[in-house]
Design a protein around this nucleic acid. Structure first.
Lengths: 238, 238
DNA sequence: ACTCTCCAATGGTCTGACCAATGTAATGCC
DNA sequence: GGCATTACATTGGTCAGACCATTGGAGAGT
């Protein structure tokens, strides 16, 4: 309650302003020099406060003319990054990760099937098409994999679920990126995506749940085999 | 990939050191002045780097003699805080929150029943006892509520699940703290906790799942009614 | 009307100083 | 000798003022 650093006091004040809605996304905060003068503190302290908030994803700082510190839009990317980092540091094994995905993703898919609107569905269709094309063109479809799971989570319109799904998918992709995959595997993955998409399109929650579960299990078994073959006893990160 | 700030370069280097295991928890980094000299940069830059990492929860800085910057133990508290903050800023409604909990908590309870060791169970027993005592002494048992859900999640030994559960419980507590509760409600809550505990103790995953689901639904309905009565149309945070 | 140059605003970095906290070692009292 | 007190060295926290680097726009020149 009583911050010992000046910068912390300032940061907390601004954060309260954001939480309470007094400061809105896009709004510009005073230049470092100006706020320092106004609060009778050094520029260093203001700077440190801005830096902390930027680290949390609450501010965006730009330099140059017309630059400054702006209140950022609400975005879960920093949380996702932070969560991913913490899971990496915790040496999260791919078994743990898959366990969490098995628990979370099928229910998310079910909810997605019930809530998806036309726009959501169109976006997923576009993505799956791109992924198909990438396979035909011998490209790497993995970059689309993360996005697929994100889009499905978005259909739920549930922020906690969206954020958690993002973090997990982020980490799963990292594990997946470590192993080589054949054209057959690519085929399999996109087929599963297609089936989940079909289920969502026809508003069949149970089918979406079932197909997503099979998909995650499929990925799990491939990851398990691959890691056993390539990196015995190894974990997601180093 | 090419940080524009000097402090970012330094921060990234240290972060890589931590990720790769070259820097271990408890280890002391050079004093700001020393590292600045060594890298031929100003103390300000080093300081900013340390500050950023501290904000992410990767460092702990202490001042005074024998002070300095130390690699922090892996701890998900910063992530939890950050996630909670983002959910607040996203104006997460208690309906959304409950939806996520309904999805996550029962399966966690099931897994907890299968994995809990004697120590885990003892800790939960202690907590439930304390909670019972608090009710008899007319104290507020809510402070124990968050802890209960944390301990159950800990039984799973699954870091992603633990982190996500923490963040959700944190936020749920915040919503719960906003409403008044009667002695009857306190009774109900602790009864549910007792039943979940019993299920875990007897390794009955399905019972744990069922009781936890009922518990969350129970809380949901109470929250729903209370918010409708006290704060029509209101959400978790402002 | 278009392009180029210059400039003012603003964040980023540096220097060097002093303040504040904090653990330890020297000091002094009993 | 043992315990409380004090002094001190170390280290993060803050300050002041300067200069650098980036950036977008205003104004000059065509």
């Amino acid at each position: 309650m009583k911050p010992r650093r000046v910068s912390e006091t300032i940061a907390r004040r601004i954060q309260r302003g954001i939480s309470s809605g007094k400061l809105e996304p896009g709004e510009k905060l005073p230049a470092e020099r100006d706020l320092a003068k106004k609060l009778n503190v050094s520029r260093v302290s203001v700077r440190e406060a801005y830096r902390s908030l930027a680290e949390l994803g609450l501010l965006r700082v730009k330099r140059g003319a017309e630059g400054g510190a702006f209140i950022a839009d609400v975005d879960h990317e920093p949380v996702t990054r932070s969560l991913s980092l913490m899971l990496r540091l915790g040496r999260t094994s791919h078994e743990e990760l898959t366990e969490a995905r098995v628990m979370l993703e099928p229910p998310i898919a079910r909810l997605a099937a019930l809530r998806a609107n036309a726009d959501d569905i169109r976006r997923i269709e576009d993505l799956v098409n791109k992924q198909e094309a990438a396979i035909k063109g011998n490209g790497d479809p993995r970059r689309y994999d993360l996005q697929f799971h994100r889009l499905v989570a978005n259909c739920t319109k549930n922020l906690p679920l969206i954020i958690m799904m993002n973090a997990l998918a982020d980490l799963a992709l990292e594990a997946f990126a470590k192993i080589d995959i054949t054209r057959d595997v690519k085929r399999h993955v996109v087929d599963f995506h297609q089936r989940v998409l079909d289920a969502i399109r026809s508003r069949d929650g149970e089918a979406a749940h079932r197909e997503m579960l099979r998909h995650v299990h499929d990925v799990q078994s491939r990851l398990g085999k691959a890691f056993e073959r390539q990196l015995p006893g190894h974990e997601v990160r180093k």
